[in-house]
Design a protein around this nucleic acid. Structure first.
Lengths: 102, 102, 102, 102
DNA sequence: ACCGTGGTTAGCTTTC
DNA sequence: GAAAGCTAACCACGGT
């Protein structure tokens, strides 16, 4: 009774081919959905892997004696600078196109 | 161009070049720190790019008529399955080591 | 002069009556705010007390020879089951409303 | 096969009696463990309920026009005062006992 | 255009 | 003293 976990289209929990296409479940739309879902999951995995990598770099830096809290602050600051710069550039572009300088 | 923003000690808040390498500012440690920072920033950029990609996939799916909220829930659910599986495995290991089965 | 940071709410730091209502400081709103703040603080206290209790149970279990790490994992797992169940229900609702079955 | 979630003692995810005592699983220890687990889960539930309540109070305050972010700051400040006070008291006690004033 | 919700990240506490 | 788990702040998305 607590068993039918998948009374709705939650194909499988795990790394796996779900070979039998679910084409009949929701019609063609099912295959389409499945494709979107899988693309997203793939991207999320890569994202998680990068987050992992970042943690490792911090750990390494820490092992070398750096204070990670300070490092984070630094990076945040630099990012803010970058964003600011970008906005200024965009504004400039805007001006240019407004003046017909494309 | 947006290069070498920061050699080391939170140089300036502003867009600017200070080409002269900071090798003497903080000694060798400065170069080391800079290297860590740049590695992290590189990884963060990639991560942001992936987040961008994900958004686009959602947008595309939405354009095809799918409800993104539902999609997100589905994905969350599938992720939970994966996580749960992983935790169960860990618990099993824990039991084994507790019983001396290494 | 760093004194009375709180010409306004922040009446006193401590167990204490501040009988004279601050009704004139910030107008009626002040009394209202004070009431909200106190309600929250009361609830936070109870929450902290429960956290304390939980720690004690773990300590007792540990004293009886159980491995708390395993216990925690077990509990987390059981919680995940509950959460998953809940999410599945929500997803089902989502589907229904998406299909107009309200 | 992905079904037997509970190849190990994870009774059930849900509101449920696990009537048949697990006395044979791990011997008497099983019942003891179960009892601890349930006590903790009960406490965790109450804690979660309080967190819920707190959120509601914030929501209500917000509805009345208060800025919750500011409120949180206020509360944090007041809490710090309380903690500080407490620490001072403890220090005082320490002094007293050190001097034999119990 | 705003609000509410959900996800992410950072800081803190506690454990080993 | 390091590692992990928990909690709280922040941010971004989607809906109204």
């Amino acid at each position: 009774m607590s068993e039918n976990v998948a009374s709705f289209p939650i194909p499988e929990p795990q790394g796996d081919e779900y070979e039998s296409q679910p084409k009949d479940v929701g019609g063609v739309a099912g295959a389409r959905l499945k494709s979107f879902i899988e693309r997203i999951e793939r991207l999320e995995e890569e994202k998680a892997a990068l987050a992992e990598d970042i943690k490792e770099v911090y750990a390494e830096a820490k092992g070398t004696g750096f204070d990670t809290k300070t490092m984070r602050k630094l990076i945040r600051l630099r990012k803010m600078d970058g964003d600011k710069r970008r906005e200024e550039d965009e504004l400039l572009e805007l001006y240019k196109s407004a003046v017909g300088l494309v």
